[in-house]
Design a protein around this nucleic acid. Structure first.
Lengths: 106, 106
DNA sequence: TGCTTATATGAGCATTTGTTCATATGTTCA
DNA sequence: TGAACATATGAACAAATGCTCATATAAGCA
């Protein structure tokens, strides 16, 4: 018992950066604006002004948040004329949101 | 297309508190100390001083974080003599952590 | 080329967050 | 009951966060 707990401790101590990384990932989902943006992109790719209009968040705020999402590799972009279209990088985002939703649903 | 996006917007606007709630859930996971605590409890229930020693976080800091976790119903407690034993409320925590780990694993 | 639209970005600011320190509360046991 | 251990909690403070405002950058079009 004591021994097995020591093992856990070892694992946690050794993987300290891993937990840091994990926390950083969740931190990104820990903001209503970003979750909304991600959730919207779950349904369809969108350009900045669309996101801004749909979520009633200022263009600047959306842009700032999108930068965070892009830096974290959760979304990717492509240019289409004047617009920049944002979409999810992969399906993990969907999975993570679903995960949380299930918990909330109780 | 325009129509379907409108539907998404409606859903997001109508469920604004839902996203707030979702963000609040993730916010809890968005701190290395708390993730470590939760992860430790994933393996075994523990009392405060054990957690504190294992994670090298001060007793006070652990206690403060545990209060947050308890308020959010992610952990539950029972007293055993002088100690208060903390354990996960349910398996959702495990699932959510696994979810994030998978994403990080790339 | 100059105007308009779309997006990005920096500075400033108010709010939130996580820690520490000091102390209170609660339990055990001599 | 009083000392010792375990946990909780409030105040204070530094750091991080997310927004707004102003402005920069970039593309399309007359």
């Amino acid at each position: 018992m004591e021994n097995s707990i020591s093992k856990i401790q070892g694992a946690i101590t050794r993987n300290s950066e891993l937990f840091e990384e994990l926390a950083n990932l969740y931190k990104i989902f820990g903001d209503a604006s970003r979750v909304k943006i991600l959730c919207a992109l779950t349904q369809s790719e969108m350009c900045v002004s669309e996101i801004s209009a749909f979520l009633s968040i200022s263009q600047s705020a959306v842009s700032h948040q999108l930068r965070i999402l892009k830096t974290s590799n959760l979304v990717k972009t492509r240019r289409e004329g004047k617009n920049i279209i944002y979409s999810l990088t992969d399906d993990h985002v969907r999975t993570i949101i679903d995960c949380g939703m299930e918990h909330i649903a109780e």
